[in-house]
Nucleic acid binder design. Structure first.
Lengths: 328, 328
DNA sequence: CTGAAAGCGCTTACAG
DNA sequence: CTGAAAGCGCTTACAG
């Protein structure tokens, strides 16, 4: 690759000083029209683009946001990405997208990211000590963090009110045998499953629980089928997320059972795709635009020095809400 | 926001020269262990992070890739994003994601992007003259470009072989009345619709055509319903993309008609979500991993000077293929 | 309207 | 093992 033209080359080609090149390139006032044209022509001729490094060194406002997501093939994350890039873009920020799912060395990947950006939003899933080391001095807003006391900023989700509404809705329709199709490590339960269980218990209901070890779509589908076959008495299935819930709807249909008549099906997330299928998916929905907006506001406020980098002032809570469509 | 610590601050705090700070921060050899520890401690204390601008000015290998997509809420684009970030990440590149859908000033957005990155992949949809101006000297690979002679690099899609396979499959099953549910400007037909029509014609079949003006999901669904009601005699529906095809499946089900028995349904794209629904969606599928890999290889080769920035050497073609699942 | 000087924060040779 | 000098490509005052 041949050396890229610098301001010096353009200045020489146009027979002016570098300062004048700056004036022309940045459309600054106080420059002769002819001179400007001559400079711009030279720049065009040389395919000159000002180095972002030279400029960045001397300009103060850097606006590169790192967004760390987990799996772009689950539409949940793109919806978040869309919300964040939208909110960030309106503030003049660019977004570096990092899908950390398949990273061989997640820590190295995020360390590299932390050097490239001025603020970070996303799913970090790091040990606190590692996080502190990698992102020292960097505004960070975690989405749905694992730990109760997040190290930095955080947008947390509050599933309980919507879950309570759901259980109320279900009991009003005489549901007796709930099944949770979960996604968790063997022997464990997700936070979502726990909230469901506790809300069921509150109204005197029990319920079954199976966990899908997500690896491949085919594997998930097989596991979903097995779970449904093992629990044919379930009258409602709450699924860990909307994507798997679509799989449950498909598996039921494949078995000649219909939602909501034979069994009710409820997802979690609120993906817009749930609107497209039939029956339309009832779900505990998150307003992703709100999540993206909140996270962006927080992290930009932290970056601007208007908010601290840590503590209660940089936490926001977003509630799921029960979105009754057709499947339950 | 308080001024961030620089190499100078760390040097002063540790009582060494800036050069020694560089050695410690970059784990370079030839530095006393105690000195290094002292420097790193000072850096930690000051939350020092080396400026990417200072470093970028003096280091040669810049690896920031701009990815321009159109609408992250259609899973097609995230699948592409996932493929590109994966391929780029393996080469040590970071990806700046730009969702240009809702940009007030698309040209300004892309002009800004072109200053932030070292190479560009994506859906530009610019006039050639504008593209030439904005991306002069920047390696660019367009995905599925509109014009036949793309200005720079390009990964084009070839739908025809898969379409021919589809029509063969359909005629083998005695299909007589095809309907294309298209997405195009009023009075026009998409390239996809044209290929379908010409392949139908080749076997002596005609077909109906309706266009969905996509604006909102609700509007699309209403339009799809109206289209199906107006063409109840159709025995196969080819849909512009998988996302809308899911809507067609839902609308059919809503009307008590079943795929593939009552009417066959075929999408285009090959989204993995088509695997989850029932019936699983038959589609003309694109190998997105291949698309992402090809585009990334091209653009990095261009950047490295191994490939020209324009011409036939920087074009790749990716073929759709008929993916027979359950809906047709 | 134009240019010479200084400096942004780093790293790369080069001395010691 | 450590530091003084030079320079990367820009922009910001400041002179003229």
């Amino acid at each position: 690759m041949q050396r890229a033209a610098t301001i010096h080359d353009v200045a020489a080609a146009a027979g002016v000083s570098r300062q004048t090149v700056t004036r022309a390139m940045n459309a600054m006032p106080g420059i002769n029209v002819d001179t400007r044209e001559r400079v711009l022509a030279a720049a065009r001729e040389l395919s000159y683009r000002p180095s972002r490094f030279g400029r960045g060194l001397v300009k103060a406002d850097h606006r590169m946001l790192g967004l760390v997501l987990d799996d772009l093939t689950n539409p949940f994350y793109p919806q978040l990405a869309s919300a964040v890039t939208g909110a960030a873009g309106r503030a003049g920020w660019n977004v570096v997208l990092t899908d950390a799912t398949h990273a061989v060395d997640r820590e190295a990947l995020l360390a590299d990211l932390s050097r490239q950006v001025d603020a970070v939003i996303g799913y970090l899933w790091l040990d606190p000590s590692v996080q502190a080391r990698l992102f020292a001095g960097v505004p960070v807003v975690e989405i749905d963090p694992i730990r109760r006391q997040p190290l930095n900023g955080a947008v947390t989700f509050d599933l309980r009110p919507a879950m309570r509404d759901l259980v109320r809705h279900l009991t009003a329709h005489d549901v007796r045998r709930p099944l949770m199709v979960d996604q968790a490590r063997p022997g464990e339960r997700s936070g979502r499953a726990k909230v469901f269980a506790s809300e069921l218990e509150r109204v005197g209901l029990g319920g079954d629980h199976v966990s899908i070890a997500t690896g491949s779509t085919a594997g998930d589908l097989a596991a979903i089928g097995a779970a449904l076959d093992a629990h044919t008495d379930a009258d409602v299935v709450l699924v860990y997320n909307d994507l798997l819930a679509l799989g449950v709807l498909g598996a039921l249909r494949h078995r000649g059972r219909r939602a909501p008549d034979d069994v009710r099906v409820v997802g979690i997330d609120g993906l817009s795709i749930g609107e497209l299928v039939a029956p339309r998916l009832t779900t505990l929905a998150l307003d992703m635009a709100e999540v993206g907006r909140s996270a962006t506001e927080l992290v930009l406020g932290m970056r601007a020095g208007e908010l601290p980098l840590t503590g209660a002032a940089v936490r926001r809570k977003v509630r799921h809400r029960l979105l009754l469509r057709d499947s339950a």
